[in-house]
Simulated assay, not measured.
Amino acid sequence: MGGRGAASGLKYTKHKGYSSYGKKYGSEYQTVLQVGNIKFVKKNEGSTTPPVETRGGHERIYVTLTKKGNPKHITYYGRNGHRLKQIDLFGPAHTVDGKKVPTPHTHLGYMHLEGGTRSKLTSSERKMVENVNRLWKNKK
């Protein structure tokens, strides 16, 4: 993704351009497709996890693809590069407050659960899911 990409680290270290885990920004994900402010990314190594933050400097939406190339997460980032919310499109149900929350569902907040989890998508989130699926289908 170049020098201005995303990383799974939480904060910048004293080494500019690196996450708190020592990963260089732009080295963990590759961009597969970009349409407007929506970027479809695939992780270079390891399990399918969305970036925690980005260095874009403006609002951005990332769609994290699985190794097989299926959209798994839609993640919203604010101007500061921090994650605002994440829509999990598929995967195992989470237990929140003793109840199973099936997918799709929305996690609110930077660290995934601190803002709560909604089991029902809002109308704008449903439209985003439809748009992402349409864009990805057209790409294929």
Rank of each mutant, 00 (worst) to 15 (best):
T122I: 07
K120Y: 04
Y21C: 10
K67H: 10
V129S: 04
K43Y: 01
G56I: 07
G116W: 00
A7P: 02
G36Y: 04
T95A: 06
E125F: 06
L33W: 00
T75C: 14
Y18W: 11
V32E: 09
M1K: 11
G22T: 06
N37R: 15
K127Y: 06
G2L: 09
T117M: 14
T31D: 05
P71G: 08
V41E: 12
I74W: 08
S19P: 05
E130I: 05
K39G: 01
P92H: 08
K100G: 01
T106A: 14
K23V: 04
Y12D: 14
G91F: 03
Q30S: 12
L65R: 07
G116K: 08
R4Y: 02
K72F: 02
P50A: 13
K42W: 02
T106V: 15
I74R: 07
I87T: 07
E45H: 13
R55I: 06
Y77R: 05
G91E: 03
L33D: 00
Y29E: 01
S27V: 08
K127Q: 13
Y18S: 07
G109L: 06
S124N: 08
M128F: 05
H58T: 11
E114G: 07
D88W: 03
S47K: 12
G115D: 08
T103M: 13
D97C: 01
G57D: 07
H82C: 11
Q86G: 04
G36P: 00
K11D: 06
Q34S: 15
V63P: 00
I61T: 10
R118D: 11
S124K: 09
L113I: 06
E59Q: 14
R134A: 02
N138M: 13
E125L: 04
K23T: 04
Y12S: 12
G81Q: 00
K140D: 03
S119W: 03
D97L: 11
S8P: 00
H94E: 12
K14P: 00
L113G: 00
V101E: 03
E59W: 01
H73K: 02
V35Q: 13
T66E: 09
D97R: 15
R79E: 11
A7H: 06
L33G: 00
T106N: 07
Y77E: 01
V101I: 15
V63H: 00
H94Y: 12
K16T: 04
H82P: 00
V35P: 02
P102C: 03
K85T: 04
P102W: 02
Y76W: 12
T54Q: 02
W136N: 01
H82F: 13
K120P: 02
R79Q: 10
L10H: 05
S47F: 06
V129N: 11
K72D: 00
K100Y: 01
P71W: 14
K120V: 10
R60P: 00
F40R: 05
Y110Q: 13
H82Q: 14
A93P: 07
I61L: 11
L65S: 07
Y29M: 03
I74H: 06
Q34W: 03
K23C: 05
E130W: 04
G109N: 08
K24C: 05
P71T: 06
T122S: 15
P50N: 13
R83S: 13
A93M: 05
G57V: 08
S20R: 06
R4A: 08
N80C: 10
G46W: 07
N131S: 11
E59T: 14
